[in-house]
Amino acid sequence: MKKKKRLVLTGRMIFVIIWCVFTLIPIYTAFVASLTKYENLGKTFLWPVDMYYQNYIDIWSRVNLTGYFKATVIYAVGTSLINVLLATFAAYALSRYAFKGKTFYSFIIFITQVIPQVVIAIPIFMTLNRIGLYDTYIGVIIAVLATSMAFPILLLRSFFDGIPVALEEAAAIDGCSRVGILFRIIVPLSTPGIATTFALSFFTGWGQYLYPLILTRDPSKTPLTVGISRMIDNQTPWEMVMTGTLLAIIPAIVIYLCAQKYLVQGLTAGSVK
């Protein structure tokens, strides 16, 4: 029995390791390429042959990386702040009230997350252009919000569902209003959920490509995704593209790793139902 258990454990370990290698291959090879000189790209294999860190210096002069970072951070932070707020309200309504049209509302919310961006991007552009929000940060942010609000709402709702109503009743007796209850009792009790929502929306905002591409015009509003993809034009050498790519995803990965304890907790507790 014990031997069998050990065998199963080894099997699991091997499988997980293979999967992790598969997961990391693209990121690792990008890392190797980013430390290689153009001429040596063909020679590099497991480890960069020349540790050419100059790529990381050159890239700043090649493209407007600072500008891309700034725009990306604005999209990511803007999206996540507003998303958390909207989702908190909506999730609270879904969790605590029975109201007419609730089913229909939930259906609509679900639908928003599966509308293909490529379907909706051009009409969104036309609407925003008409109301004067074309080429603004807020225009991109609300477009992102509209198609990504579902998951945070569903996530927070399952968090709120887990908080006993009795607590609120006690507070209500003390004369607390609904919004007061929401912010004084529910929100503090769902910190992991709020944090998870924030982080997820942050990554969503960070990774947007089509919306900023179509909804902005000014070069200062170009985010990393669009800016770096522009380098994949077959003229910019691969190692530069990879350096840019890595620089663009590293902040997101670092934030993820820092927050991952809460993230996994939050996602586990509020698993998508």
Binding site: V77, G78, L81, I82, L85, Y137, I138, V179
Partner: peptide, 23 residues
């Protein structure tokens, strides 16, 4: 408290608008 809620919304909005303005 409703005002509070509104002001929260506004604050969030302003953060973004300010960020946008800076940009």
């Amino acid at each position: 408290s409703w005002r509070k809620m509104l002001s929260c919304l506004l604050a969030a909005g302003m953060v973004t608008v300010m960020a946008a303005a800076c940009g």
